[in-house]
Computed example of a mutant assay.
Amino acid sequence: MSIFKARVKEFEDLLSKEEIDLRRLRELCFNGIPECNGFRPLCWKLLLGYLGPKKDSWSSTLERKRELYRQFIEEMVVPPGLQSSEECHDHPLSEGPESAWSTFFKDNEFLLQIDKDVRRLCPDISFFQQPTEFPCDIVVNSRGERRLHQRVVPSILSSANVERKGLGVTKINSMRKRNSESYEAMDEGQEAHWEVVQRILFIYAKLNPGQGYVQGMNEIVGPIYYIMASNSVVEERKYAEADCFFCFTALMAEIRDFFIKTLDDSEGGIKFMMEKLAKMLHEKDPDVWLRLKQQELYPQYYSFRWLTLILSQEFPLPDVVRMWDSIFSDENRFSFLIDVCCAMIVLLRDQILENDFSTNVKLLQNFPPMDINIVLSKAVSLRQKQ
């Protein structure tokens, strides 16, 4: 039996049990999830806590959550006056705090930023520009009134980029992989995958008003949606949007502090994470740490984006997906993220020790192409030496 077939059988045996051994699941997933039989979408749902370990609860959980998400679309995406549940007596020009129309127009303030970001998602692949097999019937069969991209009014955005001040030259909006063209929307009756992601982010922002939408969230939801919408089990692909939403929400519950500036110094905040990375680098490769310190090349110049976006901007999407298998399956999930970031720096040690400041900034802000297995192996070896 080949190594691949043996791994597939291990996953089949584990996932066939009435109660999933999550410890064993993490062990298997840490070394990569096979791309067959719908394993990865199911494993990510388990690892992120969307599904519980008892299999007999899956059907009711999925049915309940998917129906709830459909209600979110009805209540938050459909404009006032078009909801099927109740008649709207509100006037579009009303500015009262209880006015549904007032809320509708305020929503456009962050919707424009979402629209701008998702139209450029993962430009190295064509997936997000392609039509989904299962467009949302509530939205596409409505002559356009319910399609978010048609609600955007460019003139309302006073500041197009969401920036984080005081963290060096690297901001969330300092994205590396960008093309100049934006994706086009589909004709009536169809919708592209990026339009689905737009709706997920819009609903998330509506449900989390204290946080809202922050630029960069699109880079986190993108890989999750890609996995759910590429499920080899066709029946599950029908619910990719709802499943992605709840997996994304679960992940954001763990990393939301990264996106809230007032929590930067908290234990889960981004400054704390960058300090952990610097400390680990000092322990694992003091020469590289000293070189960067002498050049005053601090972690915020490069690792802010690495950590905040879980390295989704530094590698091609297939590599990001493989890396997330390991990160999601690690019990100290973001401790392993630190290990991976440290490994990336150590693997460039020869260049870093030789380069001047400006060259090192470019090197670390534009991580060179590298076999992801080498990076992960190095991260594991660094952890084992602790």
Rank of each mutant, 00 (worst) to 15 (best):
K293Q: 13
Q384H: 12
N332E: 14
D339H: 09
V77P: 07
L292P: 03
D371K: 12
Y298I: 14
N179D: 14
Q71E: 04
Q71H: 13
R147Q: 07
L148D: 02
D137N: 12
G269Y: 00
E35D: 10
G268Y: 09
G268H: 08
M186Q: 12
C341M: 02
C136T: 05
I338A: 13
K55Q: 06
S16H: 11
I33V: 15
H193C: 07
P123S: 03
D257A: 06
F30P: 06
R24V: 00
V118Q: 10
E19S: 10
S2Y: 02
D13N: 14
S329H: 09
Y226G: 07
Q83Y: 10
C244I: 05
P368H: 06
T249D: 14
P209N: 00
E109W: 11
E63D: 14
P154W: 01
V221R: 08
L292V: 02
N179T: 13
E163A: 12
G210P: 08
L348F: 02
E188D: 14
I260A: 11
K116S: 15
W58A: 10
L93I: 09
W324T: 00
V214G: 01
E12A: 13
E235D: 12
S159H: 05
Q351R: 08
E191D: 00
P209H: 04
I327D: 00
G189S: 04
G168I: 04
R199K: 14
D90I: 01
G52L: 13
R151F: 02
K276G: 11
S326F: 13
D137P: 06
Y69E: 02
F11T: 07
N208T: 11
G38F: 04
L46C: 01
L364V: 06
K293S: 10
V234A: 08
F272L: 08
R322E: 13
E184R: 11
F336G: 03
V380C: 11
A278I: 06
E241I: 05
L46W: 01
L382D: 00
R333D: 02
S174Y: 10
D339C: 15
M175W: 05
N218G: 09
L22A: 05
K279L: 09
Y239P: 00
G96L: 03
L311W: 05
H149I: 00
L42Q: 06
G268E: 03
T170F: 12
R256L: 06
R178Q: 09
L201A: 03
D350I: 01
L251H: 00
Q365H: 01
N360W: 01
I352C: 06
C247L: 11
P131H: 13
L347N: 02
R24H: 09
T103Y: 07
L364K: 01
L364W: 09
N31L: 12
K165C: 07
L263F: 04
Q198Y: 03
Y226F: 15
I352A: 05
Y183H: 15
C29G: 09
